[in-house]
Amino acid sequence: MSEPRLWRYLAENASGGVERGDILAGSSSHATQLLAARGVVAVEVREVGLSGNPARSGRLPSAHIADFTEDLAELLGAAVSIHDALASLAEGETRRRLREFILRLEARVRGGHSLSESLKSDPANPPRILIAMTAAGEESGQLAASLNDLAVRLRAEQTLKRDLAGQLAYPAVLVCLIYLTLVFLAFIVLPQFEIVFADSAVEPPAETRFVIAVGAFLRSYAVWIPVGLVGLAWLSRAAMARFPLVATRIRRTVPIIGPAMWKLDAAAFARTLGVLVKAGLPVNRAEQVARGAVGDAGMRDGMSRAADRVRGGTALSRALDEQNILPRDLIRQIRLGEETGALDTFLLRTADRYERMARSRLTRALELLGPVLIVILGACVAGVIAAVMSGVLSLNDAVF
């Protein structure tokens, strides 16, 4: 079958009413057949654009995936068939990329493919955990429950990201304000005093010369400083990807932030692994997917080595303990879960605790950062004023 394309149709339904909408199909005749399977007669079918192009589709935002998973779980839980659930979601969806994603899935499911196969082959490249949870739900016959568990996990992740982003907004605004204040002083205030000092034969004090030099530097490079910072951030990210183990050690040495991010990565691994194990996936398969939820490249590298040991017959807790990449408490919880047969319960409970701890630490750090930045802003302004006044007083001393 040719690559699915998007078709807009005008049709007559069973009650004689007019129905309009979009459908994904390989051709106009295929679209007509799909409409007939729904019980409507196509009057007009015309192509409105390609949807199967990977370059056009791209990866869907995480919020879109969370909405799709939650809505699909709700419909499947109400005993709606999978293709009817997808059709219903596509009909009510207003976001173009998500709608086309759902239409592609519907076309493949109606063509005889399973939902997990359709997700795996979709050009939008949905998260591996969604594919794995769907496959596990199909194997166990509990697809609605599996997707509901995943939806809870995705919502928790979205809430955490939104909270952290909101808390970072205030310090970010203060940093920009500090920079703009320094630029204003450098371009507007200091040049007036530089003229005064240039016309006098008096050597200004050292602090005044320093402030004037800083002002001259900002006037010359103010535009390039943000560019340089972005470039430095890019180089740092590339270096962290190139040397993950070194980056991991450096990150953990950062006060407050380092341990909190380590906890968040451990929580992401524990929650993803717990959700997958609860859905019925074997530990070795679940671990491969859960590893992808970890942002720390050094931690992922250690987990990969641990996975090789697990395939050789070593228990997961022991293999992870040998790598020294996760908190000791999490290793202990995994060991208890393996011994009691309740691995998913221990993992999910530990993930909840780690997220609370990390959120609390980051919140305290960001709350402290605001006043510190305000003090820095005040110190910068006061320092410039004091330096300028010191220079003016030196002129008065020279005159009198």
Rank of each mutant, 00 (worst) to 15 (best):
E74N: 05
H30Y: 06
L105P: 06
P54D: 05
P123Q: 10
E106H: 09
S118T: 08
L72E: 04
S15R: 13
D67T: 14
G141C: 01
A42L: 12
S51K: 02
S88F: 02
L154M: 02
A136V: 03
I102L: 09
D22V: 10
L75K: 03
R95C: 13
A136D: 04
D84F: 06
L89I: 01
S62D: 12
Q142K: 10
S51L: 10
G52M: 11
V41G: 03
I102G: 06
E139Y: 02
I82T: 13
S57D: 07
L75M: 12
Q142M: 07
V109I: 09
T94W: 10
S114P: 01
A42V: 10
A151V: 06
G39F: 08
L34A: 13
S118A: 15
R46N: 09
E47K: 02
T134M: 10
R46T: 10
V18A: 04
L150P: 01
L105Y: 04
L72I: 11
L154Y: 03
K120W: 02
A151T: 04
L50F: 05
A90I: 11
S62C: 09
A66M: 08
V43G: 12
D122S: 14
A85Q: 01
T32G: 13
A85P: 00
N125K: 15
S27W: 00
F68W: 10
L86W: 02
L72M: 15
L115C: 10
S51R: 06
P61Q: 13
P54F: 05
A36E: 08
Q142D: 05
I65D: 08
A55Q: 04
I23H: 00
G17E: 07
D122W: 04
R97S: 12
I129N: 01
L89Y: 02
L35M: 13
L86C: 04
E93N: 12
G137S: 03
R95W: 13
G16S: 02
L72N: 08
A25C: 04
A31D: 04
G49A: 11
A145T: 08
Q142C: 01
E139D: 02
L34F: 11
G49M: 11
E19L: 15
R128M: 14
E117V: 14
G39P: 05
H30T: 11
S27K: 00
A55G: 05
S114G: 08
L24K: 00
L24H: 00
V152S: 06
V152F: 03
E117P: 12
P126H: 07
L89P: 03
M133F: 00
V41Y: 07
G52Y: 13
A78F: 02
S118I: 08
R59V: 13
A73W: 06
I65H: 10
D67A: 15
Q33M: 15
L115R: 07
S146A: 15
V45E: 10
A42M: 11
E91Q: 08
A73Y: 07
V80G: 07
H30P: 02
P61D: 13
G16N: 03
T69L: 11
R38A: 12
V152D: 03
E19N: 14
L75D: 05
G26D: 01
L86V: 03
E44A: 14
L143K: 03
L76F: 06
E70L: 15
L24D: 00
I129V: 09
A55V: 12
I102A: 07
P123K: 12
A145E: 05
S27C: 00
E91D: 07
L75T: 09
P54K: 14
E138Y: 08
